[in-house]
Nucleic acid binder design. Sequence first.
DNA 1: AATGGTCAAGTCAGC
DNA 2: GCTGACTTGACCATT
Length: 314
Amino acid sequence: MPVRIGYPCINLSVPCRGNRTFWLASYSEANIISTVGRNLACLRMILEYNAAHGILFFRITSDLVPFASHSVCVFDWKEYFLPEFKAIGELIRMHEMRISMHPDQFVLISALDPDIVQRSVHELEYHASVLDLMGLDNSAKIQIHIGGVYGNRSGSVGRFIKQYGNLPPSVQRRLVIENDDRNFTVKDCIPVSDQTGIPVLFDIFHHELNGAGELIDEVLSTVALSWKKNDGIPMVDYSSQEPGGRRGNHAARLDPNHFKAFLDRSRPFDFDVIFEIKEKERAANRALEIGRNDERIFLINLQEISGSRHITSA
DNA sequence: AATGGTCAAGTCAGC
DNA sequence: GCTGACTTGACCATT
């Protein structure tokens, strides 16, 4: 399975948003039913757009079910929306799409405070539930950072590994760790992977900001080993610096030259890549256009567009 | 309808 | 100890 192209959470071309939420003070059963219903309907519309455009990787928003891991949420949204989740899962499987989720910065299983760890576990269980309800296999992943440094990185690593062992299997099978732009480089993530079996998600932009200058193909050859057969091929996050922006700001638009260089330097490895570019699906579309000459991208989209795969339904 | 303050959670820096 | 940045939108009360 060669390179699939994707983007995170929001599609600017469809007439809806799948990450609608409300304030905690406004929580009610009626509110959660209407919000989740709308978010799921929009998620379906986004995935249909993606299928029609040959975009086969997507990161589902953590806001799909607002307050799902909060004690205020006693409503059984899993049972209530089961048919919708199953239908979306079928759509994903039909098109052989890849799915990821990325919980927010608050999720820290390496935290010193046990309450933070517990809240994080609940949040991770919610993310796993979404993917489980859709009937997705182990290749659908939940990506987090190691985090919890507090001035001592090795302490954080120790707590992370220990807490990973305590996670429910539904979370363990989907969890992957991602290098960040401040604390943990890819090189720092590898030993954690070796000790836990967690795959390492390679973030190109974080690597540019916080790495030791290792070449992209070198890094890919290393992280690829951490993805076992039923994890699927490696996931990669791609972005570049916004010109004139604060260091670390994601670009508003895809930089064609930067992406071409990345494509060249990433040979011959296969992976699925999320474009963390502010223009969202438009960046993915541009990447597909630029990648027409790359056989890794071309092959899969040739199948999709020629109709040898399933054509999206209305 | 327009406006502007506020929003579950995390850390860190600065005062 | 508290506030704001991080990063950004959008929810919601107020007018």
